[in-house]
Design a protein around this nucleic acid. Sequence first.
DNA 1: TTGTATGCGTTATCAT
DNA 2: ATGATAACGCATACAA
Lengths: 333, 333
Amino acid sequence: MVTRDDVARHAGVSVAVVSYVVNNKNNVKEVTRQKVLKAIQELGYNPNLAARNLKTKKAGQLGVLFNSLANPFETGISLGLEERARQYGYSLIFHTFIDTEEEKLKTIFMGRTDGILLLGQNLKAETIDYFSRLEIPLYSITTPVSAHPYVKYMDIDWYEAMLCLITHLKKLGHRHIGFMTNTSSDHHHQVRYRFFAEAMKASGLVFQEKTMLLKAENLESAYQVMNKKLCANRQLPFSAMICANDLMAIGLLSACRDFGLSVPEDLSVAGCEDILMASHTTPTLTTVRFPRREIGFKSIEAIMRHTNSRIQLQNEKIDFELIIRQSTGKASK
Amino acid sequence: MVTRDDVARHAGVSVAVVSYVVNNKNNVKEVTRQKVLKAIQELGYNPNLAARNLKTKKAGQLGVLFNSLANPFETGISLGLEERARQYGYSLIFHTFIDTEEEKLKTIFMGRTDGILLLGQNLKAETIDYFSRLEIPLYSITTPVSAHPYVKYMDIDWYEAMLCLITHLKKLGHRHIGFMTNTSSDHHHQVRYRFFAEAMKASGLVFQEKTMLLKAENLESAYQVMNKKLCANRQLPFSAMICANDLMAIGLLSACRDFGLSVPEDLSVAGCEDILMASHTTPTLTTVRFPRREIGFKSIEAIMRHTNSRIQLQNEKIDFELIIRQSTGKASK
DNA sequence: TTGTATGCGTTATCAT
DNA sequence: ATGATAACGCATACAA
């Protein structure tokens, strides 16, 4: 490995000067700068980042906690995160979050990250306090179910989004609207569910959890759950169904298709997020667009403002958009 | 930050002993080990990884080079990579590969990675030599277009896969089979195209590049390209179309649907990879299954064997599977 | 079994 | 404008 000492020797200067040049200090004579640059070039020198991190206490890396790399919503956000982080010269460490291994995060990230991006996870207060003490910012994309003052987040306004969607369905004559969401109580989709319920109430519609709430977690389980529901009920207790994400909505569409139920004639279906595939299902999917790439950008920018200029992170709401496609239509009766 | 010195002082031992305990050396008296463990616990100590990396010259991290985080094929592989890497106590650094920024890889990874996983990229010989000199292994998932002895890879046997698919179509009466693939000549899909052409020849079928090769790169462009082709031709020059990946096949299906062309009655369509969505399109998609998660596992295992036991990396072929669904059917005439 | 001391490759302070 | 030199936190050879 070529080290700074090699460069110094080869250029005939001291190690300090090499550092000055590498870090663009303006106190180096142009002639020597060129000499050093030439030596760096000739030897193919690159600064050792581990050594630099140790000295500067800056890792140049950010942690990203996933729920699932198989979820296009999360990878879509990461795409924005990665693009912007790269522009700032930062690298991203991706880790799937396993709740039973939460303790390990401390070990994994110690001295290795300048900040951690959450994709909706609910960390334990103890974990949060740990990173708080190290002044490592935690920033969540989508609202965590339980609030902690140190964890700021960025999300769309789910109440408004749900109200928008429900209003759209109401105009089409729907009164009985079901909801499908993740089962676990600390899953970030619970926020979407909570605001759905509030928006239903505000819209003057009744929602009966017992019959109108379906629990699933991904495309495949949504398919299974809907299939079961269809087999068990001669008449569905809802004329429209909103899913907490598009993936589940797609599973639901597949189940309807295989069962012979027409969407939107027999049932209207809507998703959330507007993943790419939402515009390529049959029928295409009505959904709430969550601007993933942009929110990825903004999150990185917020973190960078924090680490570079000590500007505090804040909770932020960003704009959503209701995308009306073929899967929602007039209520049948 | 709590350092090893703090632990040593708190436990009333030397810093070396703390290191011994942390690294599970068996030369520590049980009593002192407990004392140290208690101190670690009480202080909430975690070893600084930057310091450890500097000393041991092991980063505990692997780089993963993406083409696009929006591609479910690549994220599906990463899912396997991440899962297995985590089990080995390794972290993954994700970077989108931008060919104009290839030079930056050296800077980004210097002292920060024990190996680099490529997702089909063709690195310049100069870049490869650089990492080769540092003895940082480069391992590619899917075959890079141009071979370099230092870059080993793992892939399915695309010749056999294509032969399988073509045979399936041939049995259905298809003689004119088109192909859709990425335009750029160093894109790893070119390998799939090359073997498609060879398998066609071996099957005694003629393939005319001029009219039967469609160039696209993702779902949206595939849609556009197919749409254009449909508008321009009264009669398609092929009765079946194989796409280098499922994403493009899905775009093609959408184009057919919007144009009013029935699949598979008017045109048979097949993809490659078998991403999740392939079984949820209408019609469902015939495709070649590429076992992403498993290949992710195996790749990490190969890299780990290399770094832990100096076992050389090798090129490997893994099994594929032809998945016949609804999008391929009898040739119409 | 435990402690001391050296060095990993940097950055940054303080001389010169 | 440049050069010594002291950390940074850790692993480990060697001494005790």
